[in-house]
Structures are given as structure tokens and as C-alpha cells.
Design a protein around this nucleic acid. Structure first.
Lengths: 148, 148
DNA sequence: ACGACTCGTAATAATTGAAGTTACATGAAA
DNA sequence: TTTCATGTAACTTCAATTATTACGAGTCGT
């Protein structure tokens, strides 16, 4: 099953932008992420609609972060991306007439709902600033490793 | 994204088999589930390898449950199906050299791992017998509704 | 004004894995 | 021996993200 990696992608892009002075072009971001500039524009466009980033055309154009990193959570980004389906496993038929299938769906749905709630709660407590700090930590560790 | 509904399917099949005296053919199960007999054989074949069901060919052949309903959990069935990917969302690159992406992956992976643990734990505490009992309850409710 | 640069977006293809289908071999029972 | 059913291989269909191509439109520097 093909997994939706847009959340991972936008996080990657946003953190690169946060570490980078000035704006970054779709091409530069696409190279960072080993993908296509059009894909970058499409996903970043959603963030722009949500007021998280801004874009400028022409010379010296590109993308910049407009939001405060400490206020943007993974959950918010998930919502901005249209709350894509979280699970790759699901019911065969969402509105079954068969009573057997209703029992099956009820049991599975309850479990999935709980797992989703936990996941979204986790997402709600991680901000871009947290990730940026984690990156800085990793960066320092690698430098220390290199100088050992 | 296309979701894997095999767990839902086998549960549906197993419960129908549990309510049904004697064996059921792949064709009968396929009709129950609005699918194809070959698909039924493919998935039920995995359950047979795990010793949960048995199949017989020829006249009066078909599938029968050999396991005790109260000992088979949703988690076990999930494993029997090859532990398919649970999440439809994932990292863009599982083994990134980029430190930014490592931070992103670490945060997402931790959240996903927790949600997966919760889901599997839920699955581990639901048996086929539980689902069968739930079906009987729904069945009784519907009959009461009809006679009101 | 011109031209290089960049976003905006539509249209289309590639990709991936489950699910569905066809076809035929194998085995069991009437 | 005919009929019914599973066992499998090979192939097609299907649905969704992702990738690509193409072109339009705005912006800056010269």
C-alpha cells in the first residue's frame, strides 16, 4: 500500500526553511527532498492557504515561513493537509446491512478510533520548534562525533 | 489510498462460519462478502497454515473452523495475515542521511509506534468469541425491534 | 520594454499494492 | 467417471499518491 508521506515532506521542508536565511525556491526544496518542484508547490500551497508560509514570484522569490514555529503543531499540519486517512487497514464495507459485519466493524472501529485519538494527541503536543531543537541537538552531536 | 480490508474480511468469514453448521464453500463465503471465491481461498489459506481453519476438497468440501473461538484474537489474525502496514501515513525516506529528516522521522515514528502499540493491545483483547457474542446480541435486538 | 526567474495550475503518466478475474490442475465423494 | 471443491499461477482492474510535462502569469534587474 502506498503511504501518504506529505506530512513527513512538509516537516522536512519547513525545517530546512527554518534553518535557512531568506526564502527558498520550490526547486531548492525539491532538491532537498529528492522530489519535484511541482509537488513542493502543491503541498506548500496548502500551507499558504492556512497562513503558515508565504510565497513570492519572480527574482529572489520563493517560500518563507510566516508562522511562529512554537505554535505550529504536527496535528495542525495534518489538518492543513486535509486530514488524510491515517490507517491502511479498514472495514470492507462501511455501511453493512449484514449483522455479522456490523459486529466486526464496531469492534475494529472502536480500536481504530482509540489509536487515532492517541496519535492525534501526540501530534498536538509536538511543535515545529520542538523538531528544530531536536535537529540542533543532533547537529551538535554529529560535530562532537567528528571531532573526537 | 486503497485500504487493506483483509482483516475485516476474514473476521466476517469466520463469524459466518461460526454461525453456520458444517462447512462452507469458498463460493458461499464469497457471496456472503460480495467478493470472489479465489480471494476467499487466498486469505483463508493463510488461516489454514496457522491451524485456525481446515479445508476439504470434493463433494461436501469447504472450510471449517478448527480453533476455539475464545482463544483467537484479532491480533493473532493480524499476524497471520502477515502483519500488513497499519498506517497509511509514513516517512518519506526511512533511512535518511539528512539530519533534518532524521528529526522528523524520529518524532513521527515515536508517535506511530505508540499508536500501533495501543491498537495491537486492543486487538489482543478481542476474541472471535467476543465478536460472536456481540453478533448474537445484535440479532436479538433486531428481533425485539421487529416484534415491537 | 525586455528577459530571466519563479510561482500557479492543469493535464497526464508512472507507481504501487490490494482486489478481482480467468484458467486449469488436483483431489474427494456420489 | 462425473461432479464438486480446493489449490495456484497468471493476469487485469482499481484507487490513490507521486512524478512529470507544459504553459500561464507575475516580479525583479538591466
Amino acid at each position: 500500500m502506498k503511504r501518504d508521506s506529505r506530512l513527513s515532506s512538509v516537516l522536512h521542508a519547513l525545517l530546512h526553511m527554518a534553518e535557512h536565511d531568506g526564502s527558498m525556491t520550490s526547486d531548492a526544496l525539491a532538491q532537498c527532498m529528492n522530489t519535484n518542484p511541482v509537488v513542493v508547490r502543491r503541498t506548500m500551497g496548502l500551507l499558504r492557504e492556512a497562513g503558515l508560509v508565504a510565497s513570492a514570484r519572480g527574482h529572489a522569490g520563493g517560500w518563507t515561513i510566516t508562522a511562529d514555529l512554537s505554535t505550529v503543531t504536527l496535528r495542525q499540519l495534518h489538518e492543513v493537509l486535509g486530514e488524510p486517512a491515517i490507517f491502511a487497514i479498514g472495514n470492507r464495507n462501511e455501511t453493512p446491512g449484514c449483522l455479522v459485519e456490523q459486529s466486526v466493524n464496531a469492534a475494529l472501529d472502536a480500536a481504530f478510533a482509540d489509536a487515532e485519538a492517541l496519535l492525534l494527541d501526540r501530534f498536538a503536543h509536538v511543535t515545529l520548534a520542538d523538531l528544530a531543537a531536536d535537529f540542533v541537538r543532533r547537529h551538535a552531536e554529529r560535530r562532537a562525533e567528528r571531532n573526537k
